[in-house]
Design a binder for these strands. Structure first.
Lengths: 342, 342
DNA sequence: TTGTAGGCGTTATCAT
DNA sequence: ATGATAACGCCTACAA
């Protein structure tokens, strides 16, 4: 096992000083062409690469970004992550990822683990539990210690930092209007518990659209489904008691499940009932009928988040004045498929 | 912006030496109870945490694992990753992830980026292009420099290192036998280009089962679908020219697509035709009919891979003798759903 | 043109 | 019981 070569090795081998080697490898013109050539050739031969850790310690910059998300086996987060990774890599950054598993404790532990020099900044989306408890002292602490932080999607208004969000209210408004324009009168909203910030925003858009069409919001039409324990019987019971001719769902799975139940009950899609879901994942594309969805452009959100973070990190580096915090809004779009009339 | 506190700060503030502080915080009994208390209290108050980078430089261990996978928006890889992350975190390791995007170049670049001290070892699955070119000099180089490497799923026989694989041949054999037992005679194999190691293994199992039942392998029954450009018309054409009463697919998407085409052609599932796919993702669970699949137990594979890697890293740390390379086999299982007779 | 010295933050060895 | 020193690998201001 050959061990990694360092400046010291090269210096010793070539009988010059370490700093000469360092300078030569940076092509400094303090060094004579002769020795530069000699040193560079030797370095190439032995495949010298500076040690990242040592460089990090010196520069107080790791070129690592910490990403903390609630779940990784999840289309939307995975897509955002892809965007983060893409942009970060282009800028020479690596990405360390931690999964909070929707729990508060893991979120805290992961952040503490990373916030001791391992990373230059965080990108994250709040866990369900964190949103529920509405406890963000760990985030405040991170910011307090001067570590930049960018929140995306599941954000909180209680924290002053960069954010990337979807125009949730607006696109839910558009989606609902689309259903109304189809002539639907009894539009259900399939949603999660209300402590999810995004679900709330989507519900607002839904309600605003109904209002605009002079339709009163009927709470019986709001179907709250537990995030982690989807029961088909629950959906079936909902259809039993409620007259529905369209469903707007805050995610993909709820929509697919509702569609499945509707089909079993003999309803024709989209003749009798229309469906729109959030998230343009595989399920929507391969379901039968295919599902009209709100595409969240996760890649773009990820790139945006990474850009905000890296810009801030490097601005700090340059000792430039701090810029005020931004909230970037990524615009969702509706992809028409077979589950709606067009 | 408070900046991070270091041993030096504490030492200066308390008018003791840095080494005293260091020892006190480690509860060394070289230090008097009095000063220990004083120092520990101060450290707690200012929330001192040792700088990971400095510790890494000193120990020549980063407690970071590098994971290089072909794709992240992909159920199987995501699941394996989950297992890696889980085990790694439990052992106090963080995970840096890089996506090769199925390309050789990105795989090489990513690995070089990480292999300069950022990580203690690699876990990876080969990109499509790497398998196609069959060029693994970059992997050999990594091993040569003494960085431990664990391959999973998409492995190569040309490299001596730890591996975690699925019992692909065997489970494909079982799956095919299941179809044969249903009385199927014309079993198609929907597969990828042959340079995918796993597809090859699965094809072998498929053929072995046919042989065992005295059925000759009919190459017309093998449908090769391009990995990145799935054309429905292609599948349709296949059904036009070929008589088929079952399909074994090396992944989930191919199976779902074939099922869709079969349904459109008026075939009844599973009466007229059965389907089994590899990968127990969302699609299989929510398709109509639901798809019988080979579950790959990705989490388990990930945990296994992480364990192999961390064990090796820490064995090295202890200066123990190198253990010989292992290949761990994770056993897949078949999950019966509606797309097969039971 | 080359080399020396100090420092990034921590730890371990060896004085005092 | 406490402190000085050196080292991990790299960089750079300053000296020679």
């Amino acid at each position: 096992m050959k061990q990694k070569i360092t400046l010291k090795h090269i210096a010793r081998e070539l009988e010059v000083s370490i700093s000469t080697v360092s300078k030569a490898l940076k092509n400094s013109d303090e060094i004579s062409e002769d020795t530069k050539e000699k040193i560079q050739a030797f370095a190439k031969l032995y495949n010298y690469k500076p040690n990242n850790i040592a460089v990090s310690l010196k520069n107080k910059r790791t070129k690592n970004i910490g990403v903390v998300i609630p779940d990784i086996v999840h289309h939307f987060f995975t897509t955002v992550f892809r965007g983060i990774e893409k942009y970060a890599n282009e800028q020479g950054y690596n990405v360390i990822i931690c999964v909070s598993d929707e729990t508060f404790d893991k979120e805290v532990i992961n952040m503490e683990m990373l916030n001791n020099g391992s990373i230059d900044g965080f990108i994250m989306s709040l866990s369900a539990e964190t949103q529920q408890k509405n406890d963000i002292t760990h985030l405040k602490q991170v910011l307090d210690q001067g570590t930049p932080l960018v929140l995306f999607d599941r954000v909180t208004d209680d924290l002053d930092c960069d954010k990337v969000i979807l125009n949730d209210e607006e696109i839910a408004f558009e989606a609902t209007k689309k259903l109304l324009k189809e002539g639907r009168k009894r539009i259900a909203l399939a949603t999660t518990e209300s402590y999810f910030n995004v679900s709330e925003k989507r519900a607002e858009g839904y309600k605003r659209a109904l209002n605009e069409y002079g339709i009163e919001v009927d709470n019986d039409l709001v179907l709250v489904i537990p995030y982690d324990d989807i029961q088909e019987s629950m959906i079936d019971a909902f259809f039993d008691t409620t007259d529905v001719d369209a469903v707007l769902s805050v995610n993909e799975i709820f929509a697919i499940q509702c569609m499945g139940v509707a089909k079993k009950r003999g309803m024709k899609i989209p003749k009798d009932i229309s469906f729109i879901g959030f998230t343009d994942g595989l399920l929507s594309r391969y379901s039968n009928p295919t599902l009209t969805v709100v595409a969240q452009h996760g890649i773009q959100m990820g790139e945006m988040a990474a850009k905000l973070l890296i810009d801030r990190v490097e601005r700090e580096d340059e000792g430039e004045e701090e810029e005020s915090f931004k909230t970037e809004i990524v615009k969702a779009s509706i992809i028409n498929r077979e589950s709606t009339l067009n």
